[in-house]
Amino acid sequence: MNSSQLLSFVTFAYGFAATFYVAAWVFKKTMPARLARWAAIIGVVVNVAGFMLRWKESYDIGYGHAPLSNMYESLVFFALTIGILYLFVETRYKTHIVGAFATPIAFLAMAYASLSPNVSDKIQPLIPALKSNWLIAHVVTCFFGYSAFAVAFGVSIMYLIKSWASEKENGLLARLPGLKMLDELTHQMVMFGFLFLSIGIITGAVWANSAWGTYWSWDPKETWSLITWFVYATLLHARMMRGWYGKKIAYLSIIGFAAVLFTYFGVNYLPGLHSYGSV
């Protein structure tokens, strides 16, 4: 069994979890929710196993680096952080309906990693610029940030759906968690994401300074991560100081996540230092 096979299984587990979380919400049943929860837990465990195995395989080949060096590996790790973060939210806030909006993102990340012809799952050697102890700290913190923003995005979508149709007391929408809780959860996730994005940018800057001799060079990836940071900083200030609430915050959180996606994927189509992220 190699890591790619394990990780294909993870795609399936997250897909199963996503389907059953949606089913639990739509049919108002607890059984699918329990199945979904188990699928998500198994998905996360196997995701970790696949990640570790791939790490070991890279040593076996003789390259020897953490599997955080290209698009495939980052997607696998992205799915893992979303899985972990979502399970934390489910346990803490005691609601499984968020799962219907969060686990599909983990599934899409894994499916894109496994199926897209543009993403190669081959273990590649590290180019000189990536050979650094900062690699792990930088990528891990960035992706915890990204995944918190992903969950915030899912919750913001729930907020908008719920608030658009709140008059018609349709059962499906009534079963979404209360607006106040959704708003609060968005805020919590954005704060968590903002802290980790900040640490991610900072570790990246310190790394850049030891590799290229400058901690900030306005490279497109750096600039886009800063744009993302500005958008979420706006959200936090608008909420804490101007009392923005609800829909406005949900829209900002969606714009923020669009910036995250562009930082992650879109930048690969622009020229710059981070171009190895695209292979």
Binding site: P220, F230, T234, V267
Partner: peptide, 24 residues
């Protein structure tokens, strides 16, 4: 004013895009 903060943060975010699209 915090309105100024929001305006500045969003202006910085929006204008920063230019330099990522047009190589510097």
């Amino acid at each position: 004013s915090v309105k100024l903060t929001v305006f500045l943060l969003l202006s910085l975010a929006a204008t920063s895009i230019i330099g990522t699209v047009i190589p510097q």
